[in-house]
Computed example of a mutant assay.
Amino acid sequence: MNSKDTTKERHIAVIGAGLAGAVFARRMLIQGYKVTVFDKSRGTGGRHAGCRMGNNSADLGAPFFDAVSPEFRKWLSFQPELIGWQPQITDFAGHKLNTKTMYTATPRQSALTRALLQGAKLITSTRIGYIWPETQGVVVRDESGNAVGHFDHVVVATPAPQAAPLLEAVPRYAERAATVQTLPAWMLVVTLNTPSGLNAGLLEGDHPILARAIKDSAKPGRSCAQRAEIWTIEANSDWSKEHQDASTEAVAEQLLAAFQDLMSVPLDVEEHRAHRWLYARQQSDTDRTYLWRQESSIGVCGDWLHGQGSEKIADSESAWRSGNALADHILARQEAKLDI
Rank of each mutant, 00 (worst) to 15 (best):
H275C: 14
H275L: 14
R276Q: 14
R276T: 12
W277S: 11
W277Y: 15
W277E: 12
W277V: 09
L278H: 13
L278A: 14
Y279N: 14
Y279Q: 12
Y279D: 11
A280N: 08
Q282R: 11
Q282S: 11
Q283F: 02
S284T: 11
S284W: 05
S284I: 06
D285W: 09
T286E: 01
T286Q: 04
D287Q: 15
D287C: 13
R288P: 11
Y290R: 13
L291Q: 06
L291C: 13
L291H: 12
L291Y: 10
W292Q: 03
R293S: 15
Q294T: 15
S297M: 14
S297K: 14
S297E: 15
G299C: 08
G299P: 10
G299M: 06
V300K: 05
C301T: 09
G302Y: 10
D303W: 05
D303F: 01
D303S: 11
W304C: 09
W304I: 07
W304N: 11
L305T: 10
H306W: 07
H306G: 07
G307M: 11
G307H: 11
G307D: 12
G309N: 09
S310F: 08
E311G: 06
E311W: 10
K312Y: 05
A314H: 03
S316H: 01
E317T: 11
E317M: 12
S318N: 09
A319F: 11
A319Y: 11
W320M: 02
R321I: 01
R321K: 05
S322E: 09
G323K: 01
G323P: 07
N324K: 10
A325E: 04
A327Q: 09
A327G: 07
D328P: 00
I330N: 02
I330Q: 03
L331T: 00
L331E: 01
A332M: 01
A332K: 05
R333S: 03
Q334H: 00
A336E: 06
K337W: 00
K337C: 03
